[in-house]
Design a protein around this nucleic acid. Structure first.
Lengths: 117, 117
DNA sequence: CTGTATCCTCCAAGATACTG
DNA sequence: CAGTATCTTGGAGGATACAG
């Protein structure tokens, strides 16, 4: 491991390098998982993501939208109603996300044990 | 999605919640991938991880060690020589990591396109 | 070679208040 | 309801110098 990896993780355009940009933050992964079962409204997302501030949720959602993971739809009407849904690209992330979570469920006891020692 | 997820992502002990702790940072995932092919020395790791400072590499390695992903071995001798290797737990992360990277390789064109628009 | 010790900067995230 | 506008802060990450 003295040579750059293939693909080079530090190429600014490298896939691996892109991941942290949007999934390395605190909320993106969780938001995507919250949208797995179908579109949700802004305030519906705040419930399972307890603790998230409106500002941060807005920021995260905007970023996910910009990157094509999420689609924002504002329904006009007497009461304001905005829905967020996964795009096909966003849905394609569900599987790798689940792989990670499956790993965590399978190994977190070990992790806790290691941390104590 | 108005109910807590199952498992609840915000349980302090939840697997999903644990992930960002060690893999959400900038370097942990990459370090683990750098150790995939076998043990590496401190300075060998700095090459592919170009740009990482000694301080940050040390911090990351210590954390990975504490969590049981990496094993540190100091070989005594005339010249100091320290090797880092994946533990079985660390190796078990390779697959989910590769799943993520495979996703990225497959979709980053879409991601770039979305970002331009 | 393998780190420590300092100092510094930046920014994600949170708190709070306010708006159409 | 779905956000914006400000202000603040903790801590990750980096630069540099030094040490065993």
């Amino acid at each position: 491991m003295t040579e750059p990896l293939d693909p080079d993780m530090f190429d600014p355009l490298c896939p691996s390098g892109l991941m942290p940009i949007r999934l390395g933050d605190k909320w993106s992964g969780m938001i995507i998982r919250c949208l797995e079962q179908g579109p949700r409204r802004f305030s519906e997302l705040r419930v399972p993501l307890r603790g998230i501030s409106a500002k941060v949720l807005t920021q995260s959602l905007r970023a996910l939208e910009r990157d094509g993971f999420v689609l924002r739809t504002a329904h006009s009407g007497p009461v304001q109603r905005v829905e967020y849904a996964l795009t096909p690209l966003g849905r394609s992330l569900i599987e790798p996300l689940n792989t990670m979570c499956a790993w965590a469920e399978e190994h977190w006891e070990e992790l806790l044990d290691a941390r104590e020692a």
